[in-house]
Nucleic acid binder design. Structure first.
Length: 307
DNA sequence: AAGGCTAGCAACCGCACCAGA
DNA sequence: CTCTGGTGCGGTTGCTAGCCT
């Protein structure tokens, strides 16, 4: 049984806002503010609208100092960098862009940036003959899109992962990193974010959290090394030994990801090879990203979810 | 000129979280 | 502690204008 709807959807007006409605809403909010109750607001001012609709209209369109369109190159870079580091946290990303709304940023990403990054000239995925880094989904399948793999790569980089064959993922982290990322320490947001944004409906965070257990460490190994030498990176696999998918990505796909990462200006060429290839090497630092501020946003995001 | 297609964007939907009763 | 209402957020939908054939 679901909760009661916030309004009578059958009787409230839906669809595009009329200019008169905008005037009424803008005038009221300018004079009285929202008084902290959007649900009651439309009744007060005689608008036949849902309170949530009023709030959305105000936040995304009527609020002062809103900018629409005309995204600058700097904003493009910031959006791409933040998306790669924290995923589709549009409100967080929008907060870094004065005058931009989360809806605007989301639409801009979905219609322009994503297309620009992944658009024209995509090569078909070929199936590899040689062992390569596998970016695993929790169900054991490879991450299906270049974006997903890009996110996983960056996330892997962000937790300081290094390729050490035979060592489970979490055992491979520094103690400080383990405690930072441990759900036991209260930091579950990062993983739940990964679940919802990277693997909607496919990632079992609880399984992932189980990987630490109460004593931390052991159990599920979201990163594992397969018997064939393929290194699988996953988050919260429900299997203690994630089956290596038969799907791997050959040079073309790696080229594509490398290109994407280079396009958003976050990786030096040498670095991206370390990320994507199976060679051992240091994970580098996100602070080397050419877009200023991304590190601090990510750290803030981490801290915010750790409280 | 007309029909189909696509991109862009405003708005809706549903879920999660939080605070207060 | 539980319930309930309000809010915030991300994903999705649907409309419209412009482009293409």
């Amino acid at each position: 049984m679901g909760r009661a709807p916030c309004c009578d959807k059958a009787s409230v007006k839906k669809g595009p806002w009329a200019a008169e409605e905008d005037v009424v809403l803008r005038a009221y909010v300018a004079e009285h503010g929202t008084a902290g109750n959007w649900i009651a607001l439309p009744r007060k001012i005689g608008l036949n609208r849902c309170g949530k609709s009023c709030r959305l209209r105000w936040l995304n369109y009527l609020r002062p100092n809103i900018r629409h369109g005309g995204f600058t190159d700097e904003e493009d870079r910031l959006i791409c960098s933040l998306y790669a580091s924290i995923g589709s946290r549009w409100s967080t990303i929008a907060a870094q862009l004065p005058g931009r709304t989360d809806n605007d940023v989301k639409n801009y990403w979905n219609t322009k940036l994503k297309r620009r990054l992944l658009g024209g000239g995509r090569r078909p995925i070929r199936y590899a003959q040689q062992p390569r880094l596998l970016l695993m989904s929790p169900t054991g399948g490879a991450a299906s899109t270049a974006l997903e793999r890009m996110q996983l790569s960056v996330q892997r980089r962000l937790v300081g992962l290094q390729d050490t064959p035979g060592l489970p993922f979490y055992d491979n982290l520094w103690p400080a990193q383990q405690s930072l990322l441990s759900p036991a320490a209260g930091y579950s947001g990062f993983w739940s974010h990964i679940q919802t944004s990277t693997y909607p409906g496919r990632l079992n965070v609880q399984d992932h959290q189980h990987a630490w257990g109460s004593s931390g460490g052991g159990g599920t190994t979201p990163m594992s090394t397969s018997p064939t030498g393929e290194t699988a990176v996953g988050v919260g696999s429900s299997s203690s030994t994630p089956a290596a998918s038969s799907v791997t990505f050959d040079g073309d796909m790696e080229d594509e990801i490398e290109m994407l990462l280079q396009q958003i200006g976050c990786l030096e060429e040498e670095d991206s090879r370390l990320l994507i290839g199976s060679e051992a090497g240091s994970a580098g630092s996100w602070s080397s990203c050419s877009t200023p501020g991304v590190d601090s946003v990510f750290q803030g995001y981490v801290q915010g979810h750790g409280q």
